[in-house]
């Protein structure tokens, strides 16, 4: 059967479009696939201490997860996994979130060892103070906890310089703002050049938490909504840092690295 050139072209375009759409459809199908294992990022909310003091800002992580999903390419399981240091599944959520607003009891040696293993072999702990003070009981508990996990002469919490990669892992930031802005700096414990635990006294969860009607639980002071936005950005950056480490530190240098090394071989 004779085929005209127009017909052939039209057929070709149709086939190409179908193929592209097909691939797109397949990609979309995969994105919408139910819980594909471990590629999804999931917070582990560390339950430490008694009562409900381990979760002073319910809904904060879910909201940050939602923001992560919308703003970045990270696929997020919105429901955080509540874990204890004795949980068998502790290592399945390498990002732990520890929040509190009052003194927490120092866990036993087995738990301390578990946390040490978790942090040493690649885990990340974000500690968020909701007590609204830089020298409160929770802050003191956190310092005691970190000293127990990494006893001296190992370094304890130290101020993270503003040029650290955690401040440019996605957004360009210079301080860890939360519901409050009482602490100008992020404090962290570093092991082998990697932040394993970060401590923020500005109540990040207070800025992220939202009720079921879509209203934020707390106003941000003194910066208002701009401060809340910067708080979300800090949360994104911390998660991005946990997942990519110092990627942003070398990634911008790629062209220079390649040129300097004269990598291009002879054909």
């Amino acid at each position: 059967m004779p085929v005209s050139r127009r017909g052939l072209l039209a057929g070709g375009f149709a086939a190409a479009a179908a193929a592209a759409l097909g691939r797109r459809a397949l990609a979309d199908r995969s994105r919408k696939a139910p819980a594909h294992g471990s590629s999804k990022f999931r917070f582990g909310q560390l339950q430490l201490g008694s009562g409900s003091s381990w979760n002073p800002r319910p809904g904060a992580l879910r909201r940050l997860g939602w923001e992560l999903e919308k703003r970045t390419s990270i696929e997020v399981e919105l429901e955080a996994a509540v874990v204890t240091l004795a949980s068998e599944t502790l290592h399945e959520t390498p990002f732990l979130y520890l929040a509190g607003e009052r003194e927490i009891e120092l866990p036993g040696p087995t738990s301390i060892e578990a946390l040490r293993r978790f942090l040493t072999f690649g885990g990340f702990l974000l500690i968020d103070s909701a007590e609204g003070a830089t020298d409160g009981a929770f802050a003191a508990s956190v310092r005691k906890l970190m000293a127990a996990v990494f006893p001296a002469p190992a370094k304890n919490l130290e101020v993270v310089p503003k040029d650290h990669v955690i401040f440019k892992s996605f957004y360009l930031l210079d301080q860890p703002l939360g519901r409050l802005a009482i602490a100008p700096a992020l404090e962290a414990v570093e092991r082998d050049g990697r932040i394993v635990a970060a401590y923020v006294a500005n109540d990040l969860g207070g800025a992220w938490a939202r009720d079921d009607f879509g209203n934020y639980d707390f106003p941000c002071e003194p910066g208002g909504e701009r401060q809340r936005e910067l708080s979300f950005r800090m949360g994104v950056n911390v998660v991005m840092y946990a997942l990519c480490l110092d990627y942003k530190a070398d990634q911008v240098h790629v062209p220079f690295i390649m040129k300097r090394r004269k990598w291009k071989p002879d054909e």
Binding site: S38, L245, Y247
Partner: peptide
């Protein structure tokens, strides 16, 4: 890597 994930992080850390 198409997206940051723990598998990506682990491989990068090992290679680095």
């Amino acid at each position: 890597a198409g997206q940051p994930a723990w598998d990506v992080r682990a491989l990068r850390q090992m290679l680095k």
